[in-house]
Amino acid sequence: MIKAERRMLLHLLRLALKGPCRLRREGDGLVLEQSGRHLPVTEKVLAEAVSLGLVTRQAGSIIALPEAAAHLRRALQEDKEEGFAAQHRQIAEEQRVVDGATQPVCRNLAESPLSVLSRLKERSGAAFLPQAAIDAGERLAADFERGHLQPKVTASWEPRIASRTPGERGGLADLTDSAVAARLRVNAALDAMGPELSGVALDVCCFGKGLEQVERERCWPARSAKLMLRTALLALARHYAPPPANARRRHAWGADGFRPEH
């Protein structure tokens, strides 16, 4: 049900809960009348209310059923919670490639673990984290999620390994090809960053930890985590988009008296 139809359903319930409503046809639509109030409704919305067991039609009248009040309270509470959550969102429209085609998408910047860090500035006013580093961190987080690597925080009802019958599939065999590929990409990314840097990238990008928490858990000095994270993400960005081979500088060392050939 689209938003306009949902709003019409809620208005219908409000009116019907005040007392029986007279239903009459007006042109191509329907109108509910109750104590001088008029509410245009559609056949679809009215049929939805009847099918949900919220109202009943009796001899040209609409009468609210006991379930209508509970449904209306629940819907209004959901709208209130949705409005509160919307205050904490930062919606940005971006272009993403989906199935080979570029499509506009909406992304909540507040959900990204790097959203706050992306607003940090250097003393010169430049961004502390380049866009390539942020994109690399979000790509790592996406592969981490696709690979189902997040630890479970709820009870698992899956049978334990000890209860499996001989020859039964398990482990990687239970994962989809896309999940296995995502895990391989995560492993390659961690190898590219190295053991000294991969931990902080995992903590911030994949586990959503704050920089202060990382410093506390790892016994690092204050304000050192953001420097380590930037180094890690820059290395990760080079892994995802390696620079051209001819762009790398080569150094030649010569003994005393060495002169380059012209």
Rank of each mutant, 00 (worst) to 15 (best):
I2P: 10
K3P: 05
A4F: 06
A4T: 12
M8T: 11
L12C: 07
L13G: 08
R14A: 04
R14K: 03
L15T: 09
A16M: 11
K18T: 13
K18N: 13
P20C: 02
P20V: 10
R25Y: 05
G29D: 01
G29L: 09
V31H: 02
V31D: 07
G36I: 07
R37I: 04
P40V: 01
V41T: 06
L46V: 13
A47F: 00
S51I: 08
A64L: 04
A68T: 03
L72C: 05
R74P: 03
R74E: 12
L76P: 02
Q77I: 01
K80V: 00
K80W: 01
G83N: 05
G83D: 09
A86I: 02
H88P: 02
R89P: 00
Q90I: 12
I91M: 07
E93W: 11
R96P: 05
V105N: 04
N108E: 14
E111W: 05
S118Y: 05
S124T: 10
S124C: 00
A127T: 02
P130A: 15
P130E: 03
I134W: 09
A136I: 04
G137T: 03
E138N: 15
E145G: 07
G147I: 00
H148Y: 09
A155K: 07
S156F: 01
E158K: 11
E158M: 09
E158F: 02
E158H: 07
E158Y: 00
P159W: 15
I161A: 15
R164I: 06
R169T: 05
R169K: 14
R169N: 10
G170F: 15
G170R: 15
G170S: 15
A173H: 08
D177P: 02
S178Q: 07
A182P: 04
R183F: 03
L184H: 12
R185M: 07
R185V: 12
V186H: 06
A188W: 04
A189M: 13
L190R: 11
M193G: 03
E196K: 13
E196Q: 14
L197S: 12
V200Q: 05
V204R: 01
V204M: 02
C205Y: 00
C206I: 00
G208V: 00
K209G: 08
L211N: 12
L211D: 00
E212I: 12
Q213P: 02
V214I: 12
E215T: 12
R216H: 07
E217M: 09
R218K: 15
C219N: 14
W220T: 03
A222Y: 10
M228T: 09
M228F: 07
L229Q: 05
L229S: 10
L229R: 01
R230W: 01
T231A: 09
L233A: 06
L234I: 11
A235I: 00
A235Y: 10
P242W: 12
P243D: 11
A245Q: 10
A247V: 10
A247K: 14
W253K: 14
W253T: 15
A255F: 10
F258P: 09
E261C: 11
